[in-house]
Design a protein around this nucleic acid. Structure first.
Length: 117
DNA sequence: GTGATGACACAAT
DNA sequence: AATTGTGCCATCA
């Protein structure tokens, strides 16, 4: 695949997230880093929450969790359970709203991840 | 332009 | 292990 030339941070984030394969997960911080803003993990969370209304209904938002391997918004039980269901269906093993990052965290394996946006 | 808001991350309790 | 405090930063109002 080719590295697209995306202007805005949000577009780059959505593109990176789209690269995460089924059966794997990635942290907000990892996505922020790959999108060129290493410390913008928090902003990535905002973008995942709003992905649908931003016109990115197809991005696998459910694969983005926090750095500890847990669902980020335990407050919203309904939504959290939905996310876990989706991930389990993809083969990720969850226990008490969290999974083992050593096993399931996505490892980007292409050289172009080193390029600068 | 300015300040408030989070699906974060990390260190210190 | 769980909670609290700080830093962060793209969005939104």
């Amino acid at each position: 695949m080719e590295l697209p030339e995306l202007e805005t941070f949000s577009e780059r984030v959505y593109w990176v997230v789209a690269q995460v394969p089924s059966g794997a997960v990635a942290s907000y911080g990892q996505i922020a880093h790959l999108a060129g803003a290493p410390r913008a993990a928090r902003a990535v969370g905002t973008l995942m929450r709003r992905s649908k209304e931003n016109g990115h209904e197809d991005v696998p938002w459910q694969r983005i969790i926090n750095s500890k391997g847990a669902i980020a918004f335990k407050g919203d039980t309904l939504r959290a359970e939905h996310q876990v269901r989706l991930l389990v269906a993809e083969g990720v093993v969850f226990d008490d709203y969290s999974c083992d990052m050593d096993t399931f965290e996505w490892s980007p394996d292409h050289a172009y991840w080193a390029v600068e946006w």
